[in-house]
Measured scan of single mutants.
Amino acid sequence: IRCIGVSNRDFVEGMSGGTWVDVVLEHGGCVTVMAQDKPTVDIELVTTTVSNMAEVRSYCYEASISDMASDSRCPTQGEAYLDKQSDTQYVCKRTLVDRGWGNGCGLFGKGSLVTCAKFTCSKKMTGKSIQPENLEYRIMLSVHGSQHSGMIVNDTGYETDENRAKVEVTPNSPRAEATLGGFGSLGLDCEPRTGLDFSDLYYLTMNNKHWLVHKEWFHDIPLPWHAGADTGTPHWNNKEALVEFKDAHAKRQTVVVLGSQEGAVHTALAGALEAEMDGAKGKLFSGHLKCRLKMDKLRLKGVSYSLCTAAFTFTKVPAETLHGTVTVEVQYAGTDGPCKIPVQMAVDMQTLTPVGRLITANPVITESTENSKMMLELDPPFGDSYIVIGVGDKKITHHWHRSGSTIGKAFEATVRGAKRMAVLGDTAWDFGSVGGVFNSLGKGIHQIFGAAFKSLFGGMSWFSQILIGTLLVWLGLNTKNGSISLTCLALGGVMIFLSTAVSA
């Protein structure tokens, strides 16, 4: 259960009878995928790494000078000259100064003066180019299975845990398959586009800190620079940016070097996208990844198990997540596992009318040892309800109150669905055939309105939902006002479609 501690969480529900669903994975976010007769899966884009970055340009932001020398000439005696002028490691300046009897010249006039100092770069920052084909995306998957609280967001041991898996995709191999043991396998067909235009970005490294910066900004930095990788004795261009020549006297000129420019660069980098280094690879934390999940090989585990009949206890007080759902960790005293956990939410304890829904599909106890633990997640209705676990006299209950409203949740879900469709863009549509167009249209309606429909009408039977949709269509056909007619027709059509397409 990876997503319960992530604030940016998206719930995606598969269409009834569908074998695939489109998701948008982004750094700092987590996606929970639910479908009829399929286990619930949490998917998170953990890291995006980039390798084989080529150094484009380096800037010196802290330097020192040494070996200063000057040469001067009297008027009419030609130009002052130093051998160091031809050495690229030196920074030199030529000027004219007033000369006369007082400073060793027989004539009054302008004399030539040249001053040089050896330039040494102490600290530099480097910009590297990123090729999209060198990106690698690491995705962690977790099935809502027989897990306890100690396994949440624990990325170790996934090789031997059938509840978890790690997959890596690249532009050259965008397809992967996550093996989930008894739950089958989940196929991923990803489109490795981060949403960032790397043709316009460089990877900047300064003092063990890293950013993504725009090329134009990078090339306009007014500091000494050299092109390409460091060859040991780089040729620094624009050395004068960190060196200041003071007022010249008759035979000498003082040279000083400016202080470190790291603070000024940090100020200019305010708002830039931060990154990290992992050995020789860069780690990015921006952008998104679009994936199509193929769920035809994914299956529920323990459908044929019998119900657990022994007593359950709450190991922890049920807690609310950031998303309005409830996490419950229970301990089973029996030894008759594997068995299914009898769990439901009810409005009252007399009729036990089921409300809400299970995020953890078909929760089971897989071990036959005593005191096995299991964590599950529920989506309670707004208002008061009861969490009921167990059967008969051994069942345990917990009162729950959820604040908020169904309308607010439906609106929030619609906005999130619209954002998801905007990110998917043209990849969500198939114009290759008439059937493809209608299929894409259905998927689009489901992406945007599916979660809201589930919130508003999830407790009704599909037949009642179709009746309401048919009534809206009838009202649309018999209303003389054009805008009201079109609105009723659209709402009725969407409702009829979703009542037959969205899983219960």
Results as ranks from 00 to 15, higher is better:
Ile43Arg: 03
Asp155Arg: 03
Gly435Pro: 00
Ser86Arg: 15
Thr205Asp: 05
His399Tyr: 06
Gly17Phe: 05
Val415Ala: 06
Asp430Gly: 04
Asn134Phe: 08
Asp98Trp: 12
Ser70Asp: 07
Val434Trp: 14
Thr397Pro: 00
His235Met: 15
Asn8Gly: 03
Lys283Leu: 02
Thr360Ile: 12
Thr170Arg: 06
Gln447Ala: 14
Lys239Met: 11
Ile448His: 10
Pro174Val: 06
Val243Lys: 06
Ser483Asp: 08
Gly432Asp: 07
Trp217Glu: 07
Val473Trp: 06
Ala241Thr: 14
Gly259Phe: 09
Thr126Val: 14
Ala410Tyr: 11
Glu62Leu: 01
Ser304Asp: 01
Ala35Thr: 12
Leu113Val: 10
Gly127Lys: 05
Leu424Thr: 05
Asp10Thr: 01
Met460Ser: 06
Asn8Gln: 06
Asn237Cys: 02
Cys60Trp: 06
Leu322Gln: 11
Met349Leu: 02
Ser304Val: 12
Glu136Ile: 00
Ile130Glu: 07
Ser7Gln: 15
Asn103His: 06
Gln465Gly: 02
Thr353Val: 12
Thr315Pro: 01
Ala275Ser: 06
Val167Lys: 04
Lys246Thr: 10
Ala176Arg: 02
Ile130Leu: 10
Pro224Cys: 08
Phe245Thr: 04
Gly392Met: 08
Ser455Lys: 13
Thr351Ser: 08
Leu489Tyr: 12
Asn478Arg: 07
Ser86Leu: 14
Asp42Ser: 01
Phe218Tyr: 11
Ala69Asn: 05
Lys316Asn: 01
Ala413Asn: 01
Met206Asp: 07
Leu113Met: 15
Glu79Ala: 11
Arg299Asp: 05
Thr335Met: 13
Ser503Trp: 07
Ser372Arg: 00
Glu274Met: 14
Leu96His: 04
Met68Gln: 04
Gly392Phe: 09
Glu159Thr: 08
Asp197Gly: 13
Trp236Tyr: 06
Lys290Ser: 12
Ser304Asn: 00
Arg57Lys: 13
Phe382Leu: 12
Lys84Trp: 07
Thr366Phe: 04
Thr170Asp: 06
Glu26Ser: 01
Glu276Ile: 10
Ala268Ser: 13
Ala410Met: 12
Thr156Arg: 14
Leu358Met: 01
Gly232Arg: 15
Met295Pro: 03
Asp155Phe: 02
Glu320Gln: 08
Leu489Ala: 13
Ser306Val: 14
Asp22Ser: 02
Thr120Leu: 13
Glu26Asp: 10
Val23Arg: 01
Lys123Val: 01
Thr170Glu: 05
Leu141Gly: 03
Thr233Asn: 15
Ile43Gln: 08
Val153Asn: 14
Val255Glu: 01
Leu223Gly: 05
Gly492Asp: 11
Thr479Asp: 03
Thr126Cys: 12
Ala490Asp: 00
Asp161Val: 03
Met295Trp: 12
Met34Arg: 05
Met295Tyr: 13
Glu240Arg: 00
Gly324Asn: 11
Asp247Trp: 08
Glu62Arg: 01
Met15Asn: 06
Asp189Val: 07
Val330His: 12
Thr470Arg: 00
Ile221Arg: 00
Gly458Gln: 15
Trp211Thr: 06
Thr479Lys: 10
Thr88Tyr: 14
Val391Lys: 15
Lys294Gly: 03
Asp379Leu: 00
Leu135Gln: 06
Ile221Cys: 04
Leu273Asp: 08
Val97Arg: 01
Thr321Pro: 03
Gly106Lys: 00
Gly404Thr: 04
Gly28Gln: 05
Asp10Gly: 06
Leu186Asn: 03
Gln89Tyr: 09
Asp197Val: 07
Cys116Gln: 08
Lys123Leu: 00
Leu300Met: 10
Ser70Trp: 11
Leu242Ser: 09
Lys123Thr: 03
Glu62Met: 11
Thr19Met: 09
Ala241Phe: 14
Phe198Trp: 08
Leu322His: 04
Thr369Ser: 12
Val343Asp: 02
Met53Val: 05
Arg175Leu: 04
Arg193Pro: 01
Leu358Ala: 10
Gly228Gln: 05
Leu45Phe: 05
Ser499Cys: 12
Phe108Asn: 06
Gln465Lys: 14
Lys409His: 14
Asn237Ala: 00
Gly14Ser: 09
Trp429Val: 04
Asp384Tyr: 10
Ser58Val: 12
Glu177Ile: 07
Val355Lys: 06
Asp83Thr: 13
Ala241Arg: 11
Glu26Gln: 12
Thr427Leu: 02
Met295Gly: 02
Ile484Glu: 11
Ala270Gly: 08
Arg94Gln: 05
Asn52Asp: 11
Gly444Ala: 15
Gly482Thr: 04
Ala248Ile: 15
Gln85His: 11
Glu133Gly: 08
Asp379Lys: 04
Gln465Trp: 10
Asp426Tyr: 01
His266Gln: 15
Thr254Phe: 12
Gln331Met: 15
Glu262His: 09
Lys110Tyr: 06
Cys116Asp: 09
Tyr305Val: 01
Ala248Met: 11
Leu141Thr: 02
Ser51Met: 12
Asp71Gln: 09
Leu489Gly: 02
Gly337Ala: 15
Gly127Arg: 09
Thr315His: 01
Glu320Pro: 01
Asn208Ser: 15
Val33Thr: 04
Ala490Gln: 10
Glu412Ser: 14
Asp200Thr: 00
Gly492Met: 10
Phe457Ser: 14
His226Leu: 06
Thr179Asp: 14
Gly181Trp: 06
Asp393His: 15
Lys209Val: 06
Val328Gln: 04
Gly408Tyr: 09
Cys339Ile: 05
Glu274Leu: 03
Gly145Phe: 07
Val91Tyr: 03
His226Gly: 00
Phe431Asn: 10
Tyr59Trp: 10
Glu191His: 08
Ser461Ala: 04
Tyr59Asp: 07
Ile130Asp: 07
Gly150Leu: 11
Asn163Ser: 14
Lys118Cys: 02
Gln344Gly: 11
Gly390Lys: 07
Phe285Ser: 14
Val347Gln: 13
Met140Phe: 07
Val326Ser: 00
Thr360Trp: 09
Phe463Gln: 04
Ser173Val: 02
Ser112Cys: 14
Ala229Glu: 09
Val169Tyr: 07
Val423Ile: 15
Val391Ser: 00
Val423Cys: 03
Pro132Thr: 05
